[in-house]
Design a protein around this nucleic acid. Structure first.
Lengths: 349, 349
DNA sequence: AGGCGCATTGACACCGGTTTCCTAAGCCGC
DNA sequence: GCGGCTTAGGAAACCGGTGTCAATGCGCCT
């Protein structure tokens, strides 16, 4: 009762819904209605309650609320992605969207080939009663995981390079266009003997990017012979290997496009091990635009995906229902990659 | 009452403490005692309850438990670190330690110079009633944040290169030795004109690493003139700048040690912009051993810190009380860095 | 035998919200 | 002016666990 300056949260204890109810002279249920934006509160009552909330600096306890709702205010991010940059940027984007909403982000790396994958995820989702989960590739492409989430009745948003699901559950990246831009760039530079190093076939992105590249080159009358179309594994080492394979051909390519940056660096390494000078003897374009793309020599030309934005959009989709937005129709601004031109690909000369 | 096959969690609903109590024929309070390892339960009772728990596949609800405990089962990681590799590895380490404990990791990036830093952290910790937080540099070195956490009575573990706090609140890395090893390596290679590019002065690690390097060189009779001791900012760009400054000296160094890898790459860039060939014309050693250290050309010799282990150790310290381990004495295996020798530093010739 | 102290256990309120059910008031048409 | 319908708001149970405190039973002491 002995209020010090009541401005906001000074005293040791935080205000509860009962305090608010007392100050606003209503029942706690009415306060609850205001918090949850129930339409069954008269305008003046709502204002009185809101004033009390502000005065006391009241913030509802997520644990108590979650207990009653039987659903927590935690968003999970489940990923099996090895690239730290991707993961951190996506976390950032998700947090951008979560900021101020009272939701928090819980991270959960996993391994798709672990025998306990489903058990782990089930435990994670069920025990914490997650509000929803966000998944980047490649977990986002795992049917058994999706089935599990549906069975658990856990909302989710998948980030992938193909529309694998209902729109409200997807953030789709246009990897096809990104690869096509890379193709156009190399063709414009005058290259004709162009090779492609793909990623793990189990990633949709590898298929989509590969197709975009091939389609765009075909449009310009360039085609990629089988010997120039290699399967990598999205790893640096596989890039080194592919690089050697391509550069030891009787008629080696003058340009190589790899479906991620790690492999691009591997190709660079291979070229150097063979005594080639870059970019003079070989043009290289990567995909991802990792920070190191701008730091290696020669600075790597690469396709950038707006990872952070993608994370933000995914979280916004997940939270849409809480903002009263219809589940189905969030206009989704297409996620477009952009070619970042640096110095690793130069005109054929 | 109509029990189907009671084996384990088949039915849609998860078992509650009441179900367990009924099956074990005890009160829910006794079940609670078993869950919380209270010593006041007779052995045969404990076994009976445990059997019921196993049979029903009962897992206590963290929200309900947290509500009653007035403390959640969430561990926060607060960081302001720009390096994704560092962040992700540390998350991994923390999760290693959390696995199976029922705790989850909530991430919270922040900016130390944001005017709302303290307000944000207060909100985060207070609202979620975090069990504890883990902080890597440089938040871990921010006195105002630490004060806030103490005021909030929130357990924390700081990761830093100096013992800034009680042992149970610290995981200390021996950056001094890491830098000393780099110094020894360069000296052993025959270098005498050796330069140092430091990081942001506001990072303790910069001071400690710098000191380790200088001390170890001094021990070998080599000293670093002022013109060879530059202040960088832990960024690539500052590395480029420092590189140019050093290499344009009348008598440039033959080797440069930068206090992180980003700056090492910057120095490489500068050297190349000046037409130098690496590593022939300049030896370079970095610190951090980021993945790209192994991918750039020439492969960068660097000092590696066991980030993941550090994260694991930090989480173990935080959880020690819950495992009945005395707060004060966890024998802390010293965190030792290791020099990873690659090809960017070669004998002076 | 009676009393004491300890080891165990349960009844009941409580954590901080939400939901269910119900009441009373306001408003309509007749 | 009255019944019926809609709406604002309250009482009490409930979400799934924990704390407090008292009750029970038992061995041991004098």
């Amino acid at each position: 009762m002995s209020e010090d300056d009541s401005r906001s949260a000074k005293p040791g204890k935080r205000a509860t819904i009962n305090d608010v109810a007392r100050v606003a002279e209503v029942s706690k249920k009415t306060v609850s209605r205001v918090i949850n934006q129930s339409p069954f509160v008269r305008e003046d009552t709502r204002e009185r309650v809101q004033a009390a909330i502000d005065e006391l600096g009241f913030v509802p306890d997520p644990q108590a609320r979650g207990l009653a709702f039987r659903r927590s205010f935690l968003v999970g991010m489940i990923y099996d992605q090895p690239s730290p940059t991707y993961v951190v940027n996506m976390q950032q984007g998700i947090l951008d969207a979560l900021k101020g909403s009272g939701f928090e982000l819980v991270v959960h790396p996993c391994s798709r080939n672990s025998p306990t994958l489903l058990k782990d995820i089930r435990g994670f989702v069920e025990r914490q009663r997650l509000f929803g989960v966000i998944m980047p590739p490649s977990v986002s492409e795992d049917d058994s995981v999706i089935e599990l989430l549906q069975e658990l009745d856990c909302p989710y948003v998948r980030i992938a390079s193909l529309a694998l699901d209902e729109p409200q559950n997807m953030v789709v990246t246009n990897d096809w266009i990104g690869a096509a831009e890379a193709a156009q760039h190399l063709a414009d530079l005058g290259h004709r003997r162009i090779a492609l190093v793909r990623g793990l076939a189990s990633f949709r992105s590898s298929v989509v990017r590969g197709q975009g590249f091939i389609d765009a080159l075909a449009e310009r009358g360039i085609d990629i012979p089988a010997a120039y179309d290699l399967q990598g594994a999205y790893t640096y080492e596989s890039g080194v290997e592919a690089g050697h394979a391509l550069l030891s051909l009787p008629e080696p390519p003058t340009a190589i496009f790899t479906l991620n940056d790690d492999m691009a660096l591997g190709v660079m390494q291979a070229a150097r091990e063979r005594g080639m000078e870059l970019p003079r003897d070989l043009s290289i374009v990567g995909f991802d635009d990792l920070p190191m793309a701008a730091r290696v020599w020669p600075n790597l030309t690469s396709v950038r995906l707006p990872i952070r934005d993608m994370g933000r959009m995914a979280a916004e989709k997940l939270l849409a229902p809480t903002r009263g937005v219809d589940p189905a129709k969030l206009q989704q601004p297409e996620v477009r990659p952009a070619l970042v031109v640096r110095r690793s690909a130069i005109p054929l000369g």
